[in-house]
Design a protein around this nucleic acid. Structure first.
Length: 265
DNA sequence: ATTGCTTCCTGAGCGC
DNA sequence: TGCGCTCAGGAAGCAA
């Protein structure tokens, strides 16, 4: 489901709701959702919430971290009614004031993992740069694209290179940059790499401003929809602004939408 | 090392 | 109504 802007929107909503709340219990409703990497289950209060790539990270005052990945259909729902239930509730984080955070996930790919604060997390350490930071620059991406045979679309989806892009934003970024999704990484010119970087930042910032994209069932913490879908130019479209048909192809098992006329570079 | 294919699940939408 | 197919904001785990 969510890419960087949606994950960040969820976190922004969580900041005002759950900071300072004391966790009394985490309940697993479906086996495999909750993974404990520590014996201790008394985690304390939520001190801070941050994001790395598409991961949500809660840090507690007793020096534990709760790492959540929503994958395709995961949602976090803050609920004041302790008895409230949802159809696909996979886990619940219960607070001492009888409020709770529901982890709803239709397709069950999402995970909640609990670690000691000092634990190293391989998946997080292998992530590439944050796209909105200075770390994503020409020097970095040029080096990463050197000798890459893979199509640029697949490379944008590779979290080890840039952390946080998913299928929708990868399509939108390539469209704005005028780059053909099938182009091999190593075949991109400096100017095109620069464009990709600039449009990555532009698209993500715009999406953040509009609280992310709601295609089917993504919701933020208050069950509200994002608005960026109104600004999509190529993903899920049939016609380009130029009048040409948008083409849909399969790359790395995912749908790529592009305009053969506007994306030739 | 790199690339790509399959798999984990559930549900919606479509043609027949 | 129902069957069978394809599709879905993701990424780990293999195999070549």
């Amino acid at each position: 489901m969510p890419e960087l802007p949606e994950v960040q929107t969820v976190i922004n909503g969580l900041q005002e709701k759950v900071i300072g709340k004391n966790i009394v219990q985490i309940i697993e409703h479906r086996a495999g959702t909750l993974i404990w990497h520590t014996e201790e289950h008394d985690l304390g209060s939520i001190k801070a919430i941050s994001r790395r790539g598409k991961y949500i990270i809660f840090v507690t005052d007793k020096e534990y971290k709760i790492v959540i990945h929503l994958r395709m259909t995961g949602k976090l729902i803050f609920e004041k009614n302790y008895n409230f239930k949802t159809a696909h509730c996979r886990a619940e984080i219960i607070f001492s004031d009888a409020t709770k955070l529901l982890f709803n996930d239709i397709r069950t790919f999402g995970k909640i993992e609990i670690y000691k604060l000092k634990d190293r997390i391989k998946a997080l350490e292998e992530l590439g740069v944050e796209p909105l930071s200075e770390d994503l620059n020409l020097k970095y991406l040029k080096e990463k694209l050197k000798n890459k045979e893979a199509p640029i679309k697949n490379i944008l989806l590779d979290q080890r290179i840039i952390a946080g892009l998913g299928n929708i934003y990868a399509c939108e970024i390539l469209y704005r940059a005028g780059v053909k999704p099938q182009r091999k990484g190593k075949r991109l010119r400096n100017k095109d790499i620069e464009n990709l970087i600039n449009y990555t930042k532009e698209v993500l910032e715009e999406a953040l401003k509009h609280n992310g994209t709601t295609i089917s069932d993504y919701r933020n913490i208050d069950d509200k929809t994002g608005e960026f879908q109104k600004f999509l130019r190529v993903y899920g479209k049939e016609k380009c602004n130029c009048g040409n048909e948008i083409r849909r192809i399969k790359q790395a098992g995912r749908s790529t939408y592009y305009c053969p006329r506007c994306q030739k570079k």
